[in-house]
């Protein structure tokens, strides 16, 4: 284990809860409420998974997704956990090659998804 996970959600209480649960499962977790520094953070540290919300204060999560996919970190596996779960949003998230779970979310299911995603991606940095 010991994978690095980054959580971006402007609801800090929810992301802190996720963080503490994931830490108990043996991951190294970092929480961000503010997405502005995200790309800098990705360049300074290595992460194996990004968990994010689409509704972020002041920025559309989809454009954030796009900027990640445009950056050198386009390989990063992304799990979107969002309140916004319409057909169009799910389709867009899939186009950016990210997984989608809609809120309200069952934590057990979330952890299962994380586990599967990390297992699949374990040889880090799949190049496309």
């Amino acid at each position: 284990m010991g994978h690095n996970i980054l959580i971006v959600d402007d609801n800090i209480y929810f992301s802190r809860l996720l963080a503490s649960q994931l830490t108990r499962l043996g991951y190294v977790v970092r929480v961000m409420a503010n997405h502005e520094e995200l790309l800098n953070l990705l360049s300074s540290d290595h992460y194996d998974l990004l968990i994010m919300e689409l509704l972020l204060n002041g920025q559309d999560g989809l454009s954030l997704l796009r900027s990640i996919r445009c950056s050198p970190y386009s390989y990063l596996p992304i799990l979107v956990v969002s309140h916004r779960s319409g057909y169009v949003d799910q389709l867009r998230v899939a186009e950016f090659d990210a997984h989608f779970l809609s809120k309200p979310v069952d934590l057990t299911q979330l952890f299962k998804t994380v586990l599967i995603m990390l297992k699949k991606e374990s040889p880090v940095g799949i190049s496309l």
């Binding site: 609801n11 209480y13 929810f14 309140h83 809120k103 309200p104 979310v105 069952d106 934590l107 057990t108």
Partner: peptide, 15 residues
């Protein structure tokens, strides 16, 4: 006030 965001985001056992 504290519980509201959790209740909106969680389901299942934790809810």
């Amino acid at each position: 006030e504290f519980l509201l965001p959790y209740l909106e985001s969680l389901k299942g056992e934790s809810f």
